[in-house]
């Protein structure tokens, strides 16, 4: 049964249905509606809603709730996500599952509240200190946003790796019909024997990312990276649209992914063999499928609301097998399909 819902609210409802029972937040546009929705609805599901004194406090409350074995989440937007980077590094190091939603806005600095994709590096290359990665999922529709929030909780618990939803102000604010996923029954949530539930009849559990002995710490990190390799092997997701006979493939994610879908349709109407490659997991990035595509498609045009960040991963995948031009917008400016189509026409007739 479809419901017309705002992106921010659909993500909040999906989190509740995924069994999120502790949500810690701090006000910031453009994800305000997510906070408001959780304030109204989470307590009714027996959950804890707490507005913290800062994003720093909020992510550390997530750390505590996750350590106690509860499905927990925080959400914010770019500047607030920067403040959470230390906490996210600690979550990664302590192998604590958690979901962090970033409804991106234009930066750096205070920037503005318009949609942007300038936090790609921060999300996928480790914005906090140390060798860690986050599972990063990038929805391009309200429906997909709800589904990816559910997936984020599942993957995060399964691999004990924090997961980030990388949305943006446009996706957060727009309203679209959405078929909300069914709630997860509590017994489906993976058991957490490592959680801090009180050392009764067992040795104490410790949630920590600390080890003074480099050789022991190396073993901990080797195990962490083995998990990351597993995630890279099993959890890559992307979408290809009209790429079978394409001469040029647009590579774009999130809001840019949906705009480029329109560009592909318009190009096809004009007889131009254009397709779209849309990464859904930004980490683990779909290097392999993109590389295969580059073996037969001469031009891969990356389009981002940034100075070109995912563009570097595209070039890493392609390794010169095809031309990898870039078209980007800054400052929260969102290009129209026509603007992108005219760019496409520089490479394909």
């Amino acid at each position: 049964m479809k419901v017309l819902m705002r992106g921010n609210e659909a993500m909040a409802e999906a989190a509740i249905r995924a069994g999120c029972r502790c949500y810690f937040c701090y006000p910031i546009t453009p994800q305000g509606e997510l906070v408001e929705y959780m304030a109204r609805h989470l307590p009714r599901h027996g959950g804890v809603f707490l507005q913290a004194e800062s994003e720093v406090a909020a992510i550390n409350m997530v750390y505590g709730a996750s350590a106690a074995g509860v499905r927990t989440m925080t959400s914010s937007s770019s500047p607030g996500i920067s403040l959470k980077m230390e906490g996210i590094s600690y979550l990664a190091g302590a192998r604590l599952p958690a979901v962090i939603i970033n409804v991106m806005r234009a930066g750096p600095g205070l920037g503005n509240i318009a949609p942007a994709q300038g936090d790609y590096f921060q999300a996928t290359k480790g914005g906090g200190h140390g060798d860690y990665r986050l599972i990063v999922l990038a929805p391009s529709t309200v429906q997909e946003a709800a589904e990816l929030v559910m997936l984020a909780f599942d993957l995060s618990d399964r691999y004990r790796v924090p997961a980030m939803i990388l949305a943006d102000g446009m996706l957060g604010q727009m309203m679209e019909p959405v078929e909300l996923p069914a709630p997860i029954p509590p017994e489906k949530i993976p058991p957490k024997p490592w959680a801090l539930t009180g050392a009764k009849g067992r040795a104490p559990n410790v949630a920590s990312s600390f080890d003074l002995d480099p050789y022991r710490f190396r073993e901990i990190l080797r195990a962490l990276w083995q998990t990351y390799r597993e995630i890279e092997k099993n959890e890559v997701r992307w979408e290809e649209y009209e790429t079978e006979d394409a001469e040029l493939v647009l590579v774009a994610y999130g809001t840019m992914g949906r705009i480029c879908r329109t560009v592909v349709r318009q190009a096809r109407k004009e007889g131009l063999p254009v397709g779209l490659f849309r990464p859904i997991t930004l980490w683990p990035f779909p290097y392999e499928p993109l590389r295969k595509l580059a073996e037969r498609v001469p031009v891969l045009l990356t389009v981002e609301l940034s100075s070109g960040q995912m563009w570097e991963d595209v070039r890493l995948s392609v390794e010169g097998r095809a031309k990898t031009p870039f078209y980007g917008e800054l400052g929260g400016v969102v290009p129209t399909p026509q603007e992108i189509l005219s760019e496409v026409k520089k490479y394909v007739r």
Binding site: F24, V48, N60, Y63, G64, A67, V70, T72
Partner: peptide
């Protein structure tokens, strides 16, 4: 903040 998260959970 961590203690708050644990206690609330």
């Amino acid at each position: 903040a961590v203690a708050t998260g644990i206690k609330r959970a």
